[in-house]
């Protein structure tokens, strides 16, 4: 029974079987295991409890935990499906799956829509878009007058808001994205295609053989 020693690995709360996660996402079992290596690093960077707290998410994204960023907050909020203030491993994998190069384009469109629907009303409203443009300008060196911002919003809504009710619904959003696929550029992470080579140490922790034994 030399090769059948059981690994007494203790997994933290929120850990889910890679086989189950692979079945529900665009990732293979090996890729889910490689993502677990990444997850462990991020989730132990400040509070070592196997969960990603917002401060750890910001630290991983910006290498600076003090940086306030509206968009990072929104992404964290969407990853945190249980809305309990932390990202568990399963939530991490399921959310990242949307960013996989082979994930359905429609899933990416839906995710981006939720991201930009700041107040979760089911519409992207003009005020929300203005808030996001202002937030983008404040994080960059770009400076635009309020007049120019309003001109940009006018142009955007003239094109996107085909029903002319001052807000963008999901169908209008889909139409806009189809005309401008570059708007979805951030929704695909090429890194996810070769995650097993980025985090090769997953091999040493792999449970795949055990699962097949």
């Amino acid at each position: 029974m030399g090769c059948f020693h059981s690994k007494q690995v203790k997994f933290p709360q929120g850990y889910e079987d890679p086989n189950v996660l692979a079945g529900e996402t665009s990732f293979s079992v090996s890729e889910v295991e490689a993502l677990y290596e990444l997850f462990k690093k991020i989730s132990s960077s400040v509070i070592n409890d196997g969960l990603i707290h917002k401060v750890e998410f910001q630290l991983a994204l910006f290498k600076n935990s003090k940086k306030e960023n509206l968009f990072a907050d929104r992404v964290f909020d969407l990853f945190d499906k249980k809305q309990n203030g932390v990202i568990e491993f399963g939530e991490f994998v399921r959310s990242l799956s949307v960013f996989h190069p082979s994930a359905p384009f429609n899933d990416k469109i839906e995710f981006a829509f939720k991201l930009y629907d700041l107040r979760k009303t089911g519409f992207i409203e003009r005020e929300e878009v203005k808030e996001m443009v202002v937030a983008l300008l404040s994080e960059s060196d770009m400076k635009l007058s309020d007049e120019v911002i309003e001109t940009i919003l006018d142009k955007t809504f003239r094109e996107a808001d085909t029903k002319q009710d001052g807000k963008i619904d999901k169908d209008e959003w889909k139409d806009l994205v189809e005309r401008h696929p570059s708007l979805m550029k951030n929704m695909t992470l090429p890194y996810l295609k070769d995650i097993t080579t980025t985090f090769p140490s997953f091999v040493f922790h792999s449970e795949v053989e055990d699962a097949n034994a």
Partner: peptide, 28 residues
């Protein structure tokens, strides 16, 4: 002549907060 203004979402997509590739630089 003034250049045509960008689409607001093109501007927004420039945010670093929307570029999750930073997560994958967490190696070590």
């Amino acid at each position: 002549s003034k250049p045509a203004p960008m689409n607001a979402f093109e501007l927004i997509s420039l945010s670093r907060g929307l570029n999750l590739s930073g997560l994958f630089e967490t190696r070590g």
